[in-house]
Write a protein that binds this DNA or RNA. Structure first.
Lengths: 103, 103
DNA sequence: TTCTTACTTGGCAAAATAGCCAAATGTTCA
DNA sequence: TGAACATTTGGCTATTTTGCCAAGTAAGAA
């Protein structure tokens, strides 16, 4: 790995890192169904408004989502929808680890 | 998000988290070309032996790679190759952020 | 203009992560 | 057996991440 490679892999890893939090991943998947405002996520996720806002900022900074203010609300939508295409594969990984909902 | 959803998204996020480090992502991609022993990574990455070993342990714990000891060496290989299928998409994300090698 | 709604930002403490060093383990070779 | 090699583990510190609270901003309503 030379310096240029390091930069590229750092950039790629940052995109993955943005998706590697349960709340952020869940929100990104919700956006597959179309744009949502911040308040909708706050209601559904059950954490502080500021926490949701910061999570969305991470996804935005990574280039995964974009936002638009309309009136009092800010709507977020997927900028690069393919980012969730590989979820069936991720599911097969956790499947291979015999993940289940059991206690 | 109920308790079961939380568990599932935590598990999925863990797989992504395992890949969200430049060194681990690079190593996972190298494994697409076939198995490698730890020492090969140490030489290429330029970081401590113990650090490489710990990174590989993270990938293993996530279910992405598996290892096999043969003689003195431990070989790692991809357990779920599809995990890297979405890299072209990740590249399009960093492309959309106008990522380049420039300073 | 003031109030309320819908956010974002700054600050902080707790927890997790990264990478180094030193020590321990397991395997082959002399 | 003992030395050398390949790797893992434990321990430590520096850095990053997370999530809450409080304060700040922007837009529409009264």
């Amino acid at each position: 790995m030379n310096a240029k490679d390091k930069k590229i892999y750092l950039a790629k890893a940052n995109v993955l890192k943005a998706l590697s939090h349960p709340t952020r991943l869940w929100m990104a998947e919700q956006l597959e169904g179309g744009e949502r405002c911040v308040c909708e996520f706050v209601d559904a996720v059950g954490v502080d408004f500021s926490t949701v806002s910061k999570h969305l900022a991470v996804l935005k900074q990574a280039g995964i989502v974009e936002d638009e203010k309309r009136g009092k609300k800010v709507f977020y939508r997927l900028k690069v929808p393919c980012v969730l295409k590989f979820m069936s594969c991720i599911e097969s990984v956790i499947g291979s680890e015999r993940f289940c909902g059991c206690p």
